[in-house]
Structure formats: structure tokens, C-alpha cells
Design a binder for these strands. Structure first.
Lengths: 113, 113
DNA sequence: TTATATACATAATATTCTTATGTATAATAA
DNA sequence: TTATTATACATAAGAATATTATGTATATAA
């Protein structure tokens, strides 16, 4: 069972920043596989969403890149910049707060007066 | 502190369906106020997002409406249809699952090999 | 009497996603 | 050996959904 993509919207940057804060450096394809593995195939990042987002994070100065060749195949490694590390913490803390807020909003009974 | 709108994206339908499953009937403005109250002003639904979404849910057969006049001012009450009730449960259960998945994905350390 | 709150709606724009397409190498299965 | 799948990048067209701005109108509070 795959999550409806609707739900995942808006979480991509947070996911990327978190994985990079744990792993020092990762390349795009690796990120898609890691997320697939860790979520038992329930979140599958598409390339059309991932790559433009990586580029945007880099353009914002949050990520730095190193290109390497594995045989003849190119691989582009991303790492958090100093600002990226700060941003990663902010995003994670905001997301944790958001989850708490949503849990409260959605779990409890709030009958109107 | 307001949540970045990015995070809230994709949760609007779930929020609406949940509030209506607790409250039998609500009107648009009331929904915005309820969400504002319950989240201590951290989630503020905008009219430009809310009304089109209500219309879409109605067009999908998930909501029914009754229009009433309070003095001379119109008020449009929304209620869950039978399919809406089913959908509401589905959405909430999916969201709960999603939260668990995201918690796992974001809380733990997953260093690559 | 002026600003704010209530109450709806929609249009232009922006953002961000899906889907499709393109290129190319490496590994595995038929 | 050849076709398929996996690896690995990228971008463009289109869809979905949000923001921001605008419009209309009544009711209430400063």
C-alpha cells in the first residue's frame, strides 16, 4: 500500500535534509532507495520531484555537491552546508511540532457548542 | 509561530473530513475558526484554499450542503454524506499511518553502509 | 462612522507534484 | 548474446493545490 501522494506533499525537503544530516553525503538515486527501504515501499520518491528539489536546495545554499565517476557513470553526491545543517534541525523540529498539532487536531473529539 | 504552509499542503481535505465527522455540520468560516482555535493560531486556513476544496468535496459526493440565513447573511452548512463518512475514516487511518511512517523515517539514525 | 469580524466566492499567479521523455552505463536473465 | 532491469542523471508538459488579491455584502465594536 502506497500513501496517497497528496499526504507526502510538502515533506520532501524535510526528508532530504534529515537523510543528509544522518549520512554526511548521499546521491539522488541513493535517497530514493533509502526512503523506499525505510518505509517498506510506502513512500516512493519520483525523479521528477527529487532532482528539481535537490537543485533548489543547492541553489538556496543548503547543499553542496561533489561529482564522482563510478566507472563511466556519473554520480552527484550532496552534503549539507553549514546553513543546511541549521535548516535541517529547524525543519525537523517544525515537523515534530506539526505532527503533534495534527495529532491533537485529528485524534480528539471537538464537538462544537 | 505559524507552520510553513509547505507542511500543511495536502492535509486540508483530511482536516475538513475529520472536523465534519465530529460535528455533524459546519460552515466554511466556522471551520477556519475551529482550526485556528484548536491549533493556537498555528494553522490558519485561507479562504482561497478552503472554499474550492469544499466545493470539490461536494462535487465528489462526499459532502452535502444546506444553506441558511442568519439575519440577511447567508451561511452554507456542510455535512458528510454516507460516502463522506467512509472516506473520512479512510483518510484518518491513512494519516495516522503516514505519521508513524514519517516518525520512523525522521526520528531514527539510518547511517548508510 | 470607521474599522473589524462574519461569510461567501472566484481569478491570477505560484508552487510543487506526476507523468513522460531523454540520455547513457552496468548487470542480470532469457 | 541479447533483451530486460537496474543504476543515474536531467528536464519539460501538464495537473493539482495552494497563496494572494479582489469582489460582494451584512453585522458589530471602537
Amino acid at each position: 500500500m502506497l500513501f496517497s501522494s497528496e499526504l507526502i506533499k510538502g515533506t520532501l525537503k524535510t526528508i532530504i535534509l534529515k537523510l543528509l544530516s544522518d549520512n554526511k553525503r548521499m546521491y539522488g538515486y541513493e535517497i530514493t532507495q533509502k526512503v523506499k527501504d525505510l518505509t517498506a515501499d510506502r513512500i516512493q520518491l519520483t525523479e521528477g520531484a527529487l532532482y528539481p528539489t535537490l537543485h533548489a536546495l543547492e541553489a538556496d545554499g543548503l547543499l553542496t555537491t561533489e561529482t564522482e565517476y563510478i566507472g563511466k557513470r556519473v554520480r552527484k553526491y550532496y552534503s549539507l552546508s553549514k546553513e543546511g545543517k541549521t535548516k535541517s534541525k529547524e525543519k525537523l523540529s517544525e515537523f515534530a511540532d506539526f505532527i503533534d498539532t495534527m495529532k491533537f487536531l485529528l485524534d480528539l473529539k471537538h464537538k462544537s457548542a
